[in-house]
């Protein structure tokens, strides 16, 4: 493999899409078969990309992290199998139940022909996707990466969470996505925050943590509650996004950390 070429990676734009999305008219036809997991991914991704895909679609990749993927669609496929019998299950639900279906939609609808990677991690998949995007941008021949966290709380797991121990408040299924556009374009040097380092160390932990996502601590300054409509699995991505948005001109480096039963992570960003 060729030797790495040193490239700085900058955060060009961030966006989020929480709750049931409102599909703009120009995407209605393209998203008519898409599930809500894909819809929130496409809306967050297109908001972060803006007009940033540039002239060459091969220069932009997509990196998507998720804890459980499109679980509702997975169960929808099981419904179709149970109700219709073998050989009669829904082909559309099956093809949309794979974890990378959303990345495929993003690539197709936003015309992104660089690398397309989906990673699954029970703890902080956005940080995992961010780390992979940074490494890939540093080593591989493309310039921009759309990085997303997409989460959907299936009623199956929500119900399991309520039974695993008494919840503080009865949760209802939620979904949402966070998207960042990263770039290595050198003209960004003087105006965009630079993503210096990401370290993610997840460990195997009790299933109850993943069900209830309690006692996640994000620093500096706050333990962010992701909001009533946001899935709990998105909390880390939302907290980091908020921290990045709060970096002002002239501020010192942001050293952001996450700690929880599932491990620890740190991100360093400089203006």
């Amino acid at each position: 493999m060729s030797n790495p070429v040193s490239k700085d990676v900058f955060v060009a734009k961030v966006a989020r899409e929480i709750g049931v999305p409102t599909i703009p008219a120009d995407l209605l036809r393209d998203l008519r078969r898409a599930d809500l997991f894909i819809q929130v991914a496409v809306l967050a991704g297109s908001a972060a990309l803006g007009s940033g895909s540039g002239d060459d679609p091969c220069q932009t990749g997509v990196f998507l992290g998720t804890t459980t993927g499109p679980l509702d669609t997975n169960f929808g496929f099981l419904d179709s199998l149970f109700d219709n019998g073998e050989s009669q299950a829904s082909p559309t639900l099956f093809s949309h139940s794979v974890h990378n279906a959303a990345a495929g939609y993003l690539a197709r609808l936003l015309n992104l022909r660089g690398p397309a990677q989906t990673v699954t991690s029970p703890g902080w998949p956005f940080l995992a996707a961010l780390a992979e995007a940074k490494t890939a941008l540093e080593l591989m021949p493309f310039k921009r990466a759309l990085v997303l966290a997409v989460e959907e709380e299936s009623p199956v797991l929500v119900e399991a969470a309520t039974r695993s121990s008494a919840p503080a408040s009865a949760p209802s299924p939620r979904r949402g996505a966070v998207a960042w556009l990263l770039t290595t374009e050198t003209e960004s040097r003087y105006r965009l925050p630079r993503l210096n380092s990401i370290l993610v160390e997840e460990n195997h932990c009790a299933a109850e943590f993943y069900l209830r996502r309690q006692e996640e601590v994000f620093q500096p300054d706050f333990t962010l509650a992701p909001g009533a409509e946001a899935p709990a699995g998105l909390a880390g991505a939302l907290a980091l996004t908020q921290a990045v948005e709060e970096i002002g001109p002239g501020d010192g480096p942001l050293f952001w950390t996450a700690t929880a039963f599932c491990g620890r992570a740190s991100v360093r960003i400089e203006r």
Binding site: N100, A103, V119, T120, E202, N203, A206
Partner: peptide, 23 residues
């Protein structure tokens, strides 16, 4: 708890980046 990379990491008792790719 069946993330295959996390399981392997725990069995081997090692630390470092751990990832499941779902492409």
């Amino acid at each position: 708890r069946n993330n295959i990379s996390a399981i392997l990491q725990e069995i081997l008792g090692v630390s470092g980046p751990s990832l499941v790719v779902t492409n």
